[in-house]
Design a protein around this nucleic acid. Sequence first.
DNA 1: ATAATTTCTTTACGCGCGATAATTTATTAG
DNA 2: CTAATAAATTATCGCGCGTAAAGAAATTAT
Lengths: 341, 341
Amino acid sequence: MSQVKIRNMEEFASVSGISRPTVSKYFNDPDSVRPSTRAKIEAALETYEYRPNIFAVNQNRKQTKTVGILVPYLADPVFAEFARNIEQRCVELGYRPTIFSSHGVQQTENDILDNLLALKPAGALLAPLGRESDVAAVRAFCDEVPTVLFDSNIADTGLAFCGMDNPQFTRLIVEYLCRSGQPPCFFEMKTPANPNARKRRQSYLEAMRTLGFEPQVFSVAGEGWHFEEIGRQGGHKVLTSGEMRTNTVLCSNDRLAIGFITACYELGMSVGRAEGCAIRVAGQDDHPFSRYTCPPLTTIAQDYDTVSKHAVATLFRAIEGEEFPYEVNLFEGKLVMRDSA
Amino acid sequence: MSQVKIRNMEEFASVSGISRPTVSKYFNDPDSVRPSTRAKIEAALETYEYRPNIFAVNQNRKQTKTVGILVPYLADPVFAEFARNIEQRCVELGYRPTIFSSHGVQQTENDILDNLLALKPAGALLAPLGRESDVAAVRAFCDEVPTVLFDSNIADTGLAFCGMDNPQFTRLIVEYLCRSGQPPCFFEMKTPANPNARKRRQSYLEAMRTLGFEPQVFSVAGEGWHFEEIGRQGGHKVLTSGEMRTNTVLCSNDRLAIGFITACYELGMSVGRAEGCAIRVAGQDDHPFSRYTCPPLTTIAQDYDTVSKHAVATLFRAIEGEEFPYEVNLFEGKLVMRDSA
DNA sequence: ATAATTTCTTTACGCGCGATAATTTATTAG
DNA sequence: CTAATAAATTATCGCGCGTAAAGAAATTAT
């Protein structure tokens, strides 16, 4: 490694013995130059430290190598896992992903979309806030940037949506709960942030009716993204109300279930499918922490990997110029039987 | 809002009736122009949509408004919380934070530092991987960019370090455990990624000796960042080994404790400080989920807010030109008494 | 070998803005 | 009202690179 500092592409071109426009072509696509010149450039790259100035590159190219990743709440391990997974795939494809979190706030989501737009990204992968989203703002963004939505759908927005097959999710676990014990009641937030929650409620009702059982829904108060606390406090209310007509609770998602189990503990109720337990609790999502609740949580596993993979693949089809109609890709979940139900 | 699209600062200057250099000055610092011209510019800003091209700005300014935030593992809610907190503070100060995660991998950490360098950030806030970090690479980065380290310290690197006062943390909870029941043994990973873990072990030994008790340390195998699973499997080994000379376990951190409690559950051992419980378990960090374990976890609360605040404040002192010697700022934790110990 | 084709070089311009110097205009002090 | 000061204007350059056109050189095909 030479001590000579290369200041720009001009200098690098001269030490590599290739003209600047050709070097520029090389950095744009190494395969676009003759193998012999490519070798020369890469030899120089071994000797001298040089990388094109990213700001100059991005200013002049119409399309950057940036990919925006936006999740509604990064402190939720479900979304941290999505972000990590998607990020890695983008890196592998030679792009520069940037992760943003709306922190559950519409204004923040809008600000991020606005800032992201200024970065002229090649594409974006968005998990919108859901109910809190400014639909017009998200649509406006999608009109400018190739975008794939995931997790939380906004109809006909962006190139495609990749998410869960909520009816399948809920039907699967409702059927399991019904055949292994008492039919479940449904525990949810009254005004859920995420549209998946509404679909799951719907799917619960349908599944119960199909199976010939009377559904019972508990919608508890609570705003924001502190689901565990909402689940805990709501759990206390429901459990002490005496209104539960069953010993089995299906929670709208795992984080609510985690809080609900805490409530059970605090009320001295034993949770589990084992004999002698007072109550069975199940969740939906397979949250990373669900394996470690006491008892471990029975739930439906969302396949982060498949959803991420498909979302990224769809985006890059578009980035690489393919045209295709709007898609909705829903993926099935798998039952994860643990001890809580 | 006019329909005329403003393409650059030149055009915006002309529609606002102000010369381009003055407009440029305004965007650099709105207070640097006369109030009357500022008003004119802001009036135009109401009518026309224009924002300076961020790439052109960053190319020409020696210093950008970017701030890099790097954490070792974003899927760990402790770091998600840090990242969120720091991010928000930077936004409030008018900067553009960008969050990165090393995902526990040295090469990733190095790549991120490398990429970050190319973004000419005004500063960076790094929580290094710890044992896995390439110290030379981190130091090299710190030589180029004003950097404050947090959470995990690398001696004499960067402008300052902000983190926990591990001796105080551990002493506090050891004292509590000793006066409220049997003195604790210490449960940790054999080769912890994070240097805090080593200090906590040390501090445990000292605290126990000071109090006149015989320490006992269990170092369990396990690599990586899946602490809950390591805690669970290690917990099984320790609990079934018959080597524990006490009914109280202090875990090196909350995530290990969460896994340990799961192991207790799986072995049918009741956890808690209540009478009749088989074992007491305590953690350290006040992980966001610790409130929801069964029983809720007694732990030492790390003050994310204060650490973040201090780290950001220190960085911006440097960004704004102040010179000061290398600092180490350690913050005390508070005992959070819940039911597990 | 010659022609056809591909690739490279040279030259030149443009992107959008920061920065500077010299000049003009507006504001404030006396 | 004039001088002193502050602020805005005009003009001009530079940043580092993308890109286009025209011609030279190297490669491939015939």
